[in-house]
Design a protein around this nucleic acid. Structure first.
Lengths: 342, 342
DNA sequence: TCTTGGCACTCTTCAACCACGAGTGCCAGA
DNA sequence: TCTGGCACTCGTGGTTGAAGAGTGCCAAGA
């Protein structure tokens, strides 16, 4: 009974604080929520909640503000993921379905996510590691210059311009193209790279130098983690709504947004599987981001989370709404990747 | 004489204000610069400069602040582009030379520019319009799915996955590849697209539907202005140094950074040729960006400016330094594009 | 004619102060 | 266990006054 009401009070505090950005007092609380008790009773509950560390008082004569621990309880036990409206679902579907390629999917997703949640959205490009090699293409640009194109199962395309030591005939090129594809096509990135690196030994000695030159670049671009580290970011303008504490909250986040590696760690360690997960305030390792929360999830074709996406915002954020948006976008993107993989 | 000193005073005001961010008074001015006259004299000059609209007084008992007109005079007549140090030049060269592809060049440039100037940097991806078609590649992914790859002279690669209405043999594919390249390779984008659109009439009727399907996607991706509108942005964290007036200066700029189309107009209309140009404050069409300046230039292979790059910052910025950095980066990127085009 | 020192004046900034009100904690009574 | 009442705390907002920065102007000097 009493326990239940205390939780109801906590939920009401979180909801009101998220909506108003102001410490919420006992009177305002009973006025806005049907708690069925008097402010004095609520005050007693508040005192208990404060004792337990779920809420906190900025100063004696102010209302209460949820602590990180309070938000944690709220997301874990007091809220459910808000279902998206049919209109929103349709909007997501039509916007993402009209993407022309993988980059476009990622770009659209990140913009979509930021407008849906009105937060900063982050989408990691699908990683190479689990994807397979679909095709390797060689195009002679000049007799001593070859464009290498690596097409992956996720739809990702890597290109490199290679300077080769000697001229190469079209026949040589075609022959090499076949060899490369026989070795690597269909393989996972890592296996493909291994197979390719054995290739120079299997070609006629005359072609060996050339082959080696191209294979080196290929394996390099396959093992290159640069592309693992790519992320798209959108909605930085929403930081403007952070309101106060520019220095303590906005600046560190703006700096983090520039450092894609940091961002990746940030959303990567939050989202482990394909469930939407939340990291609140100081729960993360970055002390400078103590007043921000992360809502993230893995996404990818069925049963393999290729990458993560999510939003970053003030601890005072609409968790149910953000979680719903993140989940919905992740599902749609996963479905698109699924289709592309058939 | 007197005119000269007045200009010296203006220059001193601009320099001090840029350095300190505070209205500069007559005493501080004579202390920090060797003007050889007394504060009273400087005051007279200031009064004249204010009369002419070059400086302005926030309130009676404050120092002077340059107006946009004052900055304009400063960049046009009172400053020269600071030469880059040898170390900086080396840093630019080594960083950009180690880029692996066009995207990488752009990414590196924009980061470099933002760290050099400590401003928000913007680099437009080279536009398609002036570039020529280098090669068109077709790759069968499944019997009814073809990956179309369009390689341009700038090193840009566009890819599209196409669903075709009927199965296609390898021979058909090879044949079509040759036809496509005969029609478009070496042509400018626009001419190539025109030639391609005539192609379906020239193939055997049996192949016509298929050809049309692929040609449509190709011409679409060639005329698609999406890729013209791509820009890379970096250094948003530098906005933190804007200091005061978050709402009037930082927020509109943050919003503009999200709208790539706006950004492109912003730097596009500043930079007309390959000279570094400056737009100061309200000189531009965006009233919301009245307190920001843009330093931009065109870049590209010799004699053809393909795209623009530049920095955006507060009107109170280090113009000589920014102009030097913009010019230096533009030159290096142009050189790299030049080499890639041989 | 230009420059300079002096002086009165204006206006912002900062700190101190005070009244107000929001919100609390606690207690006695239902 | 809940509730109304009451004293208490403390931040907020407005006012006031002193300090300081900077100016404009004027008369005298070069």
């Amino acid at each position: 009974m009493v326990e239940d009401r205390k939780l109801a009070v906590l939920r009401a505090i979180v909801e009101d604080y998220v909506a108003t950005e102001e410490p919420v007092g006992s009177r305002a609380l009973v006025e806005r929520h049907q708690l069925g008790v008097s402010p004095a009773t609520v005050r007693n509950d508040m005192a208990a909640l404060e004792e337990e560390g779920f809420i906190h008082q900025p100063h004696t004569s102010a209302g209460r503000v949820p602590t990180d621990k309070g938000y944690r309880l709220f997301v874990d036990r007091l809220s459910s993921v808000k279902p998206m409206s049919a209109a929103e679902k349709r909007a997501i579907a039509t916007l993402l379905d009209s993407a022309v390629d993988l980059d476009d999917v990622v770009q659209r997703s990140v913009r979509l996510l930021s407008t849906l949640t009105r937060q900063v959205a982050i989408v990691q490009y699908p990683t190479l590691s689990r994807s397979t090699v679909r095709h390797i293409e060689l195009v002679a640009i000049t007799p001593t210059r070859v464009m290498l194109i690596l097409i992956l199962s996720t739809g990702r395309v890597e290109q490199r311009l290679v300077e080769i030591p000697a001229e190469m005939s079209d026949d040589q090129l075609a022959d090499l193209r076949i060899r490369l594809n026989q070795a690597a096509a269909g393989e996972r990135i890592a296996d493909g790279a291994a197979a390719l690196s054995r290739l120079p030994d299997a070609v006629p000695p005359a072609d060996r130098a050339l082959t080696k030159c191209l294979v080196d670049v290929l394996t390099d671009s396959m093992s290159d983690h640069r592309s693992d580290e790519r992320v798209a970011v959108a909605g930085a303008a929403n930081l403007a709504r952070f309101g106060d504490n520019f220095d303590t909250a906005v600046r560190p986040l703006l700096e983090a947004l520039e450092e894609h590696v940091v961002l990746l760690k940030l959303i990567g360690e939050v989202a482990v599987g394909d469930a939407v997960t939340v990291r609140i305030g100081h729960e993360g390792p970055y002390s400078q981001l103590a007043s921000t929360s992360v809502v993230a999830t893995g996404y990818g074709p069925t049963d393999q989370a290729l990458a993560t996406l999510g939003v970053v915002g003030p601890t005072r954020m609409d968790y149910p709404g953000s979680m719903a948006a993140v989940r919905a976008v992740a599902r749609y993107v996963s479905r698109i990747l699924d289709e592309g993989q058939q």
